[in-house]
């Protein structure tokens, strides 16, 4: 008797948890799982003469370009669990590059790269290029080349949707701000708004939960992460759109292949000129970014 009762109990509990999980799933999918917004037709065409370079030759003989990107960064590189497509601004730029080299934006293999393996993947030739919210800095330039920058990320502020008082980082003085442990976000806030009280949580989502509950007035960290949070909670949060640090995102490629780097820079310049860059942004991060940025100047070093 007891055993039967127990099994009923377990089944009921499992059922309850199952329903709860489903409920959570549907309510949090503000990003739209099935509908991956496709920008309306790019103007980009295949380059008329493609120069000889180790990477470009490899792409041509393979008939496909291999791009390393993030699979878990909403709005930039996120693997759609329903379609298997990679959605986001980084993925769209990859498609533009594929179109430029091969004349077809479907001739891409996406490979997941995470922060720790990006340089290795480039050096070992596992990928032709890395477009993965990849900040250009001098330490990384020792090992890989960077085309771009194609986007200026930076630390920004997220507030509740109905907040109208916080417009820039200095408005955080005297306010409570949440961020995460183990990141430099706190120091950046403190240096710009010394009177802000910073509460550090262990994840970006719990820091966001503190904002939702009104325990803090704002959350501050990299705008790309905040955009992802806004994308998931469009009715609760909004981005202030006043970045106060600068992190230029570049396209990582083999350090020695300057011909390929110039080619990618030309592709970016073309996309920025013909409006494809703007289209790609509008269809991805631009959905939740209140102030669509202008493309940063390309650094042809």
């Amino acid at each position: 008797m007891f055993r039967r009762r127990l099994s009923v109990l377990v089944a009921t509990a499992a059922l309850a948890m199952g329903t709860a999980a489903c409920g959570g799933g549907t309510s949090s999918s503000g990003g739209g799982l099935a509908a991956s917004a496709k920008p309306a037709g790019y103007a980009m065409t295949q380059a008329t003469n493609i120069p000889a370079s180790p990477t470009l030759d490899a792409i041509k003989s393979r008939g496909k370009i291999v791009i390393g990107t993030k699979f878990d960064q909403p709005l930039f590189g996120l693997k759609n669990p329903v379609t298997g497509n990679i959605d986001g601004f980084d993925a769209e730029l990859s498609r533009l590059l594929a179109k430029r080299v091969l004349g077809d934006d479907k001739k891409i293999d996406f490979v997941e790269t995470v922060s720790k393996n990006r340089e290795d993947f480039i050096e070992q030739g596992k990928v032709d290029a890395v477009i993965a919210t990849y900040t250009i800095n001098d330490a990384r330039k020792q090992r890989v080349g960077f085309a771009g920058p194609y986007y200026l990320a930076g630390q920004d502020i997220m507030v509740k949707k109905d907040n109208t008082t916080i417009k820039s980082v200095t408005d955080l003085n005297g306010k409570k701000v949440s961020s995460v442990q183990g990141s430099t976000s706190e120091q950046n806030i403190k240096s710009k708004a010394p009177q802000a009280q910073v509460l550090l949580f262990d994840t970006y989502t719990t820091a966001g939960e503190a904002l939702r509950d009104g325990r803090v007035d704002a959350e501050s960290t990299d705008n790309v992460i905040l955009l992802g949070l806004v994308d998931k909670n469009p009715d609760a949060f909004k981005l202030v759109g006043a970045p106060f640090t600068q992190e230029p995102y570049g396209i990582g490629l083999k350090k020695a292949d300057t011909v390929f780097r110039n080619f990618v820079n030309d592709t970016l310049a073309e996309a920025e000129k013909n409006g494809d860059w703007q289209k790609a942004y509008a269809a991805t991060a631009g959905k939740v970014d209140p102030k669509p940025p202008t493309p940063p100047a390309i650094d042809r070093y």
Binding site: S178, Q181, G182, S183, T184, E186, Q187, L199, L200, F201, D202, T206, A210
Partner: peptide, 17 residues
């Protein structure tokens, strides 16, 4: 620390950052 308390562990964590 998971609910943003500023205890000894959190102090060490901030220093380490």
């Amino acid at each position: 620390t998971v609910i943003a308390g500023v205890d000894l562990t959190s102090a060490a964590d901030r220093l380490n950052t």
